[in-house]
Amino acid sequence: MNITTLEKIGVVVRDLDQAIEQHATYLDTTEWTTNDCTDDRLSAMVSYGRRSAGTYRTAFGRAGGNVPFELVQPTGGETPFSHFLLSRGEGIAYLTVRAEGADEASIASHFGALGIRAAHTHVVDGDVRRTFWDTREALGGYLLEVLPAPYAATGEVRTLDGEALRGGRTPLPMQQVFHFGVVVDDTLATLEQYRAILGIESFAVKTWQTEHGRLDNPYYRDLRPVQHGYFTAQGSTGDFGFEIIQCTYGPAHYNREFTDQRGPGIHHLFPYLTTDSADWAQTVEAMTALGAPLCMGSDLRGGASEYAYFDTFDRLGGFLIEGVHRRFPAEDRYMAPDWVVDFRTRVEED
């Protein structure tokens, strides 16, 4: 499949109205298209090959005009949303992507050839079919919804005053999704699945650990500095990317507050990058005042940059937001990956 566009970040929440307000506060997502998907609007519902029934409410909005969120509150019965909420809690349950030049038949054929079944399918208003493919084990704890055409939101529009909700403070800048951070048990074993399902051919592999030039001064909560490490691979498809993360040692948000509680999944998204120290300081100050301080991070690459996670987990619906401040160009020895996994060099087996 030729994946071109991220159409939705599917976040399952307990209370849709509260989640909309929180997203307006922190991300300045002030216009939402909402739908109440009741029994009379839903048909042909199938979960894991069984006839099922369920209902939900949704709201679609774009943070910063570029980052597309669909917030979903299960309201009854069996849906992929109720399953996620009851088994894992709030969080990013699925990604909706567009496959250029595909249709429903070719999308189904693609997943069928890989042995991936539909976790759930249903029809909205007798017209729009939603199918969620069961990529949880293959990709790391989330489903995929693949569209053959751009998503066009329809429904009742709701507008909020984000500036008033923030008390005039600065929202977290949302530029684009540079990557999703997916925490898994085995990074290298997962990469083949990202190639097969999403068509990503190349990954830059890097080990991050407490040492100069990698994690120069890492912290996690009140552990300053903390001794920890993680093994990552980064690749991209269409207009977004992935960072596949495997914890190697020590306490981190990845394990202590995420996989220890819920297993593999989408831990964070990275939408904010700045080279302006004043902008970085202002954003950190504003988010801290709003109740989302930095909870984990470090100087990187010999102090050339800093990464950090804003603690939005309980506010936005089960995920963190990463920001990066680039201070100056890093030396080449610190920028280089440890190696590159390039599936275009695969050797055919006899």
Results as ranks from 00 to 15, higher is better:
A189Q: 14
T135G: 01
T121K: 08
Q246M: 05
L215H: 06
T232K: 02
N66R: 15
Y151E: 10
A292L: 10
R166V: 06
V124M: 13
L139C: 04
K206E: 02
A281Q: 15
L188Q: 14
A153T: 02
E7A: 14
H228D: 03
L139G: 00
G91K: 11
R98E: 15
L86T: 13
D314Y: 08
N2Q: 14
G297R: 08
A102C: 09
E145T: 00
K8M: 11
E211T: 14
E100H: 11
F111G: 07
A53H: 14
G115K: 09
W339V: 01
Y249K: 04
A278E: 15
T29L: 09
G112M: 05
Q175S: 13
A330P: 04
F60T: 02
G241F: 07
Y219M: 06
T232S: 04
T275M: 13
T345F: 13
G115C: 08
I321G: 00
V67E: 03
Q73W: 01
T237F: 06
E104N: 00
E104R: 11
A153Q: 06
H253P: 00
T79N: 09
A152F: 07
P80Q: 07
W208R: 10
I116N: 00
G181Q: 00
R88G: 01
Q261P: 00
Y219C: 01
G302L: 10
T274Q: 11
A152T: 14
G263R: 12
S82L: 02
R195A: 00
L86S: 12
S106E: 02
T237G: 06
P218A: 07
G77K: 12
D186G: 11
T274E: 04
Y48H: 13
A53M: 11
L273G: 00
V124K: 13
T210S: 14
G250W: 12
H267T: 02
S82E: 08
A153E: 08
E348D: 12
G126P: 01
D260L: 12
A233Y: 04
G238D: 13
F242C: 07
V347P: 02
G317Q: 06
G76K: 12
H253S: 11
F240C: 09
Q176Y: 09
C295R: 05
E100T: 08
T187Q: 13
L16A: 04
H110G: 09
V182Q: 11
A204L: 09
G140K: 13
G61W: 01
Q175E: 15
T5A: 08
D350P: 14
I244K: 02
D239C: 08
S109D: 15
G213W: 07
C295F: 02
R158T: 15
R301C: 01
A108V: 08
P251I: 01
L165I: 04
S236A: 15
E78A: 07
T4H: 05
P337D: 03
G265Q: 12
A113C: 06
L191I: 12
V97F: 10
H110V: 13
P150R: 15
L290M: 15
G303P: 05
E70G: 03
V13F: 12
A24S: 14
G241S: 05
V46Q: 09
D338R: 09
I197W: 04
A233T: 01
T283I: 05
M45R: 11
Y194T: 03
V284A: 10
E285L: 09
L114T: 10
L165V: 03
L215M: 04
H110S: 12
Y334C: 06
F240R: 06
E156L: 10
V46H: 07
L316C: 08
P218L: 07
